[in-house]
Design a protein around this nucleic acid. Structure first.
Length: 414
RNA sequence: GCGAUCGUAGCUCAGUUGGUUAGAGCGCCGGUUUGUGGUACCGGAGGUCGGGGGUUCGAGACCCCUCGAUCGCCCCA
């Protein structure tokens, strides 16, 4: 016998209760995005590598080590999409979607990152994603966040808080960054090894270091608020005022940053509260939904400057938080205990399904055991073609529900 | 890339300081009972103990390598 091939590392086969929870997340997202009038878009799962390399920054670790890239037969470098935003931006530019601006888009599907798998992190994973493109006003941020907030509520996820920060405009952000570098450089030798390296590569990231040695210096690090321009401050105030008006609870997170340089103004993550059940279920992967405003992205792909704001959330992580979703109960199970009645039973099952009853046929294996097996599955009604002499050859047993009565009436009517 | 823990039947797991022929439950298949909401009885199939090497009279167990999984670090678009 040939050996069964193994699944690719970091991929998963989702089934049963997990698959039901996954579907529940996607269905809820689809329902909520319609309420907010976000339009569906589908993009290819792979693009020319430059689409991601140029938007993310050629030199980052992400591009060099953490993307699924390969050459096609023509020698062109392609990459499985590691995120939605770059592909959406490319589609926006190549299809002239400027004509629809401001454009509210929603999508979901698989993404790929070449990373070491751990709890809540896979190499192929799935996200839901929402973007508002071509809207510079803070109201766009508010609407996007209100949708995220409502989505989480409709998923029944509790104990999660919106952590909100501003990175200011370009000038604010640069001034802040410079001040941070100066602050941390003064105490460089006392920082963790990782943060000493971050000081050169990505100083903002020191702010959310988990290392105790760094924490003390993070506490009295310069705050973005000291560097905000008047415009940037007004923008952030408008966002927070809008969230209050929309009834979205939030908390200020001064050290929340984004890894990439193109982010401006609003940055946010929905994070489980410390000690909550949600936090426990997610392990060290705490962010369940994150995003922000990005202004330089379209230009990096050769487009006109276009303000945009968006978020994405991992479907698997959300599915871990929505609780057990059992498969819906079958309306009717039809058991063929007498094989001579098989054709009749097949006819009945077909009629049931056409009448929009969910129905399952049990006609395989030992006829004597079919009834016992059918009993083990949850159903509103059991319909059996029996072997009993005399009386009705069909027996119906309901569980007393409305649905069971409907099935009984339907069977009697045919 | 680094670290810790773990790989025994389709699934969940036992398996004593290394000692006969490898165990249970569930599931699956068959038979008996007969009959109405998950719960009866009997039997059966199914394992190169992740893979390779080593130590030993003897390895599922100990050592090395390797593959895989899980959790964490780094990173987090």
């Amino acid at each position: 016998m040939p050996k069964t091939p193994q699944a690719i590392r970091g991929t998963q086969d989702i089934f049963g209760a997990d698959a039901e929870a996954f579907a529940f997340v996607v269905e809820t997202f689809e329902r909520v995005r319609r309420l907010y009038r976000f339009r569906r878009a589908e993009m290819p799962v792979f693009e020319k590598t430059e689409v991601f390399a140029r938007s993310i920054g050629e030199t980052t670790d992400i591009v060099s080590k953490e993307m699924y890239s390969f050459e096609d037969r023509g020698g062109e470098s392609l990459t499985l999409r590691p995120e939605f935003t770059a592909g959406i931006a490319r589609a926006f530019l190549s299809n002239g979607w400027q004509q629809h601006a401001p454009l509210k888009l929603a999508t979901h599907g698989p993404l790929f990152r070449y990373e070491r798998p751990q709890k809540g992190r896979y190499r192929q994973f799935h996200q839901i994603d929402a973007e508002i493109i071509g809207a510079a006003e803070p109201q766009a941020d508010v609407e996007l966040l209100a949708m995220a907030d409502q989505l989480l509520k409709e998923l029944g996820i509790e104990g999660v808080t919106l952590h909100l920060n501003t990175l200011g405009d370009g000038d604010s952000r640069e001034a802040w960054r410079a001040a941070l570098v100066e602050h941390f450089r003064a105490v460089k030798d006392e920082l963790s090894e990782d943060s000493q390296e971050r000081l050169e590569k990505n100083p903002l990231r020191i702010l959310d270091s988990k290392d105790r040695r760094d924490r003390q210096f993070v506490a009295d690090a310069p705050k973005i608020d000291q560097f905000l321009s008047d415009d940037a401050r007004a923008f952030f105030d408008a966002v927070t005022a809008g969230l209050d008006a929309a009834g979205v609870k939030w908390t200020r997170a001064e050290s929340l940053v984004r890894g990439l340089d193109y982010y401006r103004h609003t940055a946010f993550e929905f994070i489980p509260d410390e000690g909550s059940e949600a936090a426990g279920r997610l392990g060290s992967q705490s962010t369940i939904l994150g995003g922000g405003r990005y202004d330089g992205l379209m230009e990096s792909l050769g487009g006109a400057p276009t303000p945009a704001v968006g978020w994405a959330a991992g479907i698997e992580r959300l599915a871990m938080l929505v609780g057990e979703k059992i498969e819906p109960m079958t309306d009717a199970i039809v058991v063929v205990e007498n094989d001579e009645k098989l054709a009749e039973a097949v006819k009945m099952v077909a009629a049931m399904r056409k009448a929009h009853f969910s129905a399952e046929l049990f006609a395989a294996g030992s006829p004597r055991k079919r009834f016992d097996k059918a009993k083990k599955l949850p159903s509103h009604a059991l319909v059996s073609f029996t072997v009993t002499e005399g009386g009705s050859p069909v027996r119906i047993m309901g569980n007393g529900s409305e649905r069971a009565t409907a099935v009984e009436n339907f069977v009697l009517s045919i």
